[in-house]
Amino acid sequence: MTQRADIHDSHSPLVEVRDLNFSIAGRPIYRGVNLDIERGKVTAIMGPSGSGKTTLLRLIGGQWRASQGQVLFDGEDVARQSQRRLFDIRKRMGMLFQSGALLSDLSVFDNVAFPLREHTDLPGELVRDIVLMKLQAVGLRNARDLYPAELSGGMARRVALARSIALDPDMVMYDEPFSGQDPISMGVLLRLIRQLNDALGLTSIVVSHDVNETLGIADYVYVIADSEIVDHGTPDELRQSDSEWVDQFLHARADGPVPFHYPGQSYRDDLLTSAR
């Protein structure tokens, strides 16, 4: 499984997106996007709602295929792999969905044990120990007998985080991990993402539109808008950016390149039309 990964240069980016073009139902989501996800770093993908941030994670995970361009994971084009090979690649990725995506008929313990039971032949006692260690890492060891319906939103995401690192992946992708969280849950998730990344030697991709929180933990940031990367750099570099997009996004301005009014007929023309 790791043979090709070993051959690939360990100093090169873990994920390379090259000239990516992607459309949904004729609407372009990406036009010629290029970006690199460096190993061992927390890379944030930011941008307004509907700018295709989650789509990027699905393209990296091989769930969707780009119409043009390449998405390389450790040197391998994820869109051109057999299902068996793609599944081998996915074992090296963890993904935290916005909804948590916990299996609703399994307990917290069984959810975290799920990938271990599916992909390993480890004895039950060892699976139990690993699951308890993962749950301990996210502070929910004593919630192992609860079911997803009994968890708060923040707890569900922490369980999903424990599950996403169950197989000790190389990379974890976080899809809007902070949305809808109270300040305490948000603080816990922020700390966990940074600590797990550093302690486990992970590579993390955080898709979010929570500006201050994400800039606080990210090593590098890409801002996506209007189907393109409009700017990228370290959090400090972005704060100094002169891009109108970045300015509107970072300072939460109501109007700018992303207009307050949905584009269409002018207000004046609309009123005159109804007067006639």
Partner: peptide, 21 residues
């Protein structure tokens, strides 16, 4: 409902084929 709540996508991303499971 499993599809609507991303449980099937979650399985795919855990390298588990929902058709089989």
């Amino acid at each position: 409902l499993m599809k609507a709540t991303d449980q099937l996508s979650g399985m795919e991303m855990m390298a588990v084929d929902p058709l089989r499971r």
